[in-house]
Design a protein around this nucleic acid. Sequence first.
DNA 1: CGCTGTAGCGCG
DNA 2: AAAGCGCGCTACAGCG
Length: 572
Amino acid sequence: MSLSATDPAWILNARNGVNYVATLISADGTERTQQIAVADWPAWVQQHEHPNSPRWVFNDTALVYPTLLNAGVRVARAHDLRLCHAILRDSAFVAGGESLRHATAWEVAPAAEPSERPIEALFDFGVQGPRHVPGDPADVRAEFDRQRAILDAADGRLRLLTVAESTGALIAAEMRSAGLPWDVLAHEQMLAETLGVRPPGGGTPSIMVQRADEVRQLLGDPTVSLDSQPKLLRALHRAGIMVESTSKWELEEQTHPAIEPLLEYKKLSRLYSANAWAWLSEWVRDGRFRPVYVPGGVVTGRWASSGGGALQIPRALRAAVRAAPGWRLIVADVAQLEPRVLAAMSGDLAMADAARGQDLYSGLVDRGIVATRQEAKIAVLGAMYGSTTGEAGRLVPRLRRAFPQAMAMVDDAAQTGEDGGIVSTLLGRSSPPASDEWTAVQRAATDADADSSSEQRARRSARDRGRFTRNFIVQGTAAEWALAWLAEIRRGLAALPETTGQKTEPSGAAFQAVPHLAFFLHDEVILHVPGDLADAAADVVRQAAARAATLLFGTFPLDFPLDLKIAENAGK
DNA sequence: CGCTGTAGCGCG
DNA sequence: AAAGCGCGCTACAGCG
């Protein structure tokens, strides 16, 4: 099916006081504008969504798309003006970003928890409040025109990035809408086993109480509060444990008998406050965990999350992620994504060669670059993070000899950052410019009458910034790879044949009747799919990884192997 | 009392 | 006492 000249290539979505206002822009430049009653909008979008879908231009996908999803409407392609504004405004690949820098109304935080809001509020394109990006027809059109002018003149990589970012915004909303299937009973059973019985009226669970008593007894201090750092620290000192903080790593080096139960208590306490009954009742509804993903929430382009701590779910709790009856989970993560990305983006064939196969770290050992897998890990992480001391400081130079091209790339990025410059990812997301404060500190140190402390401060902040820009190019390009992976997974899932098994998993909105992405965390995904499509979906995930590699790195000879399993639960 | 800052720890 | 990047969340401390 080919796109005819009058089929819209873009549909701009806006809202005046009363109606939705859609502007359909065709490939040949013809346009027409249509007003749609608010209540009719999802159905209208559905009508215009077809195999050669137009790209839906949204002022803010996070704000608008849940309305469609709640009505069972999905769109294939989008352009998110808020997210793309942020990218294009700062990108060093853009010649004239000034037009965007003046449009400050587009620089707002993403909408908070859109689907928690009453349904009428969902039909809000931002015309009512200063919290949101603009949503009225004139502003949407003006911003679209600015961005389109920039993109028409830009590098293809930047266009790929805006497409990937916008698709990510669709996926984030879809994943929240679908939710991650969560087995509350399994979770509660685990809590009972590790934390103990919860008193009926609330309060500390039994095993935590026992551990705390044990600690207090061994410290010879029957009443001390373990939850107050100053009080605990004083109690430790009184017991002769001369630590400077109550942190885990420092306590681990002590031999006092109270240490073991104390560390155990801290671990339980963390689980209790972060991911126990309160977390369950707040975040798991109808057997689904629905975190708020925040695409582009991290400067590097990684996603952030808000609410529910989606990016910090303890690995042990993943066993509570359980497929609906007759359905399966596809659980996949990329082995050593960031070092592979570094090898590929720098074109370092030696590093690519060492990375070939399942385990990059073993590759370094096999080539005699380091002695053990653990050393390899420390060296590689140290190279990407800018370690200069300790074991990493000792090992990184070996990497510099073995992989000069890859190391030159991160070393250059660090130098640029130290000099106050800007670095960019492969697809053109650029680091933020040095802050005024940072620049002032540097300037103060070059004054003729600068003292040694201001020089020291300047050096330190320069190095800090260097480590940030060093890591930025790798973390940010890895985030781009992951976005491409996600988008290709989504596309592949949409092309799967219909299931012959149970179509609708129990909790569902219409689109949950199809295999779907259910979770994403930097370099791993969880899919929830009907059992008969599990193998096909697993292939989709693998092929998507290969496609992502090709999209970013062309024919560069490096693969991105996955650890992938098909299972009923996501635990180990 | 609410607010803000920080320590500590979970994730990649 | 983090070394060495990027995050979010909770509880406590300390403030007005």
